[in-house]
Lab assay of single mutants.
Amino acid sequence: MFYPNSPQTSPQLTQIPYGQQYAMMQRQIQQPYHPFATTEPQARLYPYHYQGPIQQEQGGFITQQSTAASPQYVQMRVTPVDQSIMSGYPNQTANGSSSSSFNYNIHPQQQQQQQQQQQQLRHHAMPVGSVPLQDDRYRKQLIVNYLAPDVTSTDLHELFSRFGELDGARIIYDKQTNMSKGYGFVYFCHAEDAKEAVERMSGYEFHGKWLKVGYSTNPLNIVPSNSSPYVHAGSRGAAG
Rank of each mutant, 00 (worst) to 15 (best):
R27Y: 02
I85K: 13
Y230P: 08
I16F: 10
V128S: 07
I222H: 03
D135Y: 13
Q55L: 03
T152A: 11
P32C: 05
I85L: 10
T63S: 11
T152K: 07
A23D: 09
A148E: 02
N178P: 02
Q15A: 08
S70E: 06
K181M: 10
N91A: 07
Q65I: 02
N103V: 08
F102T: 10
K195D: 07
S99E: 06
F36W: 06
S87T: 08
L166T: 03
Y22L: 05
G60M: 05
Y89R: 15
T177I: 13
H123C: 08
Q12W: 02
A233R: 06
K181V: 02
A69P: 10
V223H: 04
E205K: 10
R170C: 01
H190A: 13
S227G: 05
N95V: 04
A23I: 02
Q26D: 03
P108Q: 13
Q58G: 12
D167R: 01
Q28L: 06
D193I: 02
N226L: 08
Q110N: 05
I29P: 14
E205Y: 15
G168P: 00
G164K: 01
I62E: 09
S98C: 04
I143D: 00
Y146R: 02
N105Q: 05
S235C: 14
S84E: 09
S225Q: 06
Q26C: 07
G88Y: 04
F160L: 02
Q64G: 08
Q31V: 04
S84M: 08
Q42C: 07
N178C: 13
P127L: 06
P149W: 15
H124K: 08
Q31E: 08
A23R: 13
P17Q: 10
Y48T: 14
P229T: 08
P35C: 08
Q31R: 14
Q118Y: 12
H232E: 03
G240C: 13
L147W: 00
Y73C: 13
S97P: 12
Q114M: 12
G19S: 11
D167W: 06
H107V: 05
G59T: 09
V198A: 08
Q12F: 05
G164R: 00
F188P: 00
L142M: 03
A94W: 08
Q64S: 07
F188V: 00
G237T: 11
R77V: 01
A94H: 08
Q30N: 04
A169E: 04
Q75G: 14
M201D: 00
G164L: 01
P224S: 09
Y138T: 03
M126C: 11
N103I: 06
H124L: 09
Q28P: 09
A238V: 05
A194M: 00
Q92W: 03
A197M: 00
T38C: 10
I29T: 12
S235E: 07
Q118T: 08
T39G: 14
Q117C: 11
I222Y: 06
Q111H: 10
E158R: 12
D174L: 02
Q110K: 13
L147M: 02
K209N: 02
V81D: 11
F160P: 01
Q55C: 08
S228G: 13
Y215W: 03
T38A: 12
M76P: 13
A69I: 08
Q31G: 08
Y104S: 04
A23S: 11
N105F: 05
P11W: 05
S97I: 10
G59V: 05
E196H: 10
A238T: 10
Q83R: 15
V78M: 14
P17I: 01
S99T: 11
P224W: 03
P41T: 08
E40R: 14
L156E: 00
Q72G: 09
V78T: 14
M25W: 05
G164T: 00
P132A: 07
V198L: 08
P127T: 10
F163S: 02
E57Q: 10
Q64R: 13
Y215G: 00
V81M: 15
Y146G: 01
S228W: 13
P32V: 04
A148D: 03
M25D: 11
S227T: 09
F2T: 14
G59H: 05
I85E: 07
H207P: 00
G237S: 12
I106F: 10
Q113L: 11
A23C: 07
H157M: 14
R236A: 05
G52S: 09
N226V: 05
G59N: 11
N95A: 12
A125N: 10
Y104R: 12
G214I: 00
P17G: 06
K175T: 06
N91Q: 05
L133F: 15
P32M: 03
Q176M: 07
Q176S: 07
Q28D: 04
G19E: 12
P35M: 03
C189T: 14
S84R: 11
G96H: 08
Y22C: 10
E192S: 08
G237L: 08
G88L: 07
M126S: 04
E158A: 12
A37F: 06
P108H: 07
Q134T: 09
K209S: 02
T217N: 09
Y48K: 15
A94F: 10
V213W: 01
Y173T: 08
D135L: 05
Q56A: 09
A197Q: 00
N105K: 12
P127M: 06
S153L: 04
Q141V: 00
S66K: 15
R139S: 07
F185L: 01
S228H: 13
T154P: 15
R170H: 15
T38K: 15
Q110T: 09
F2Y: 06
L45W: 09
Q119H: 11
V151Q: 01
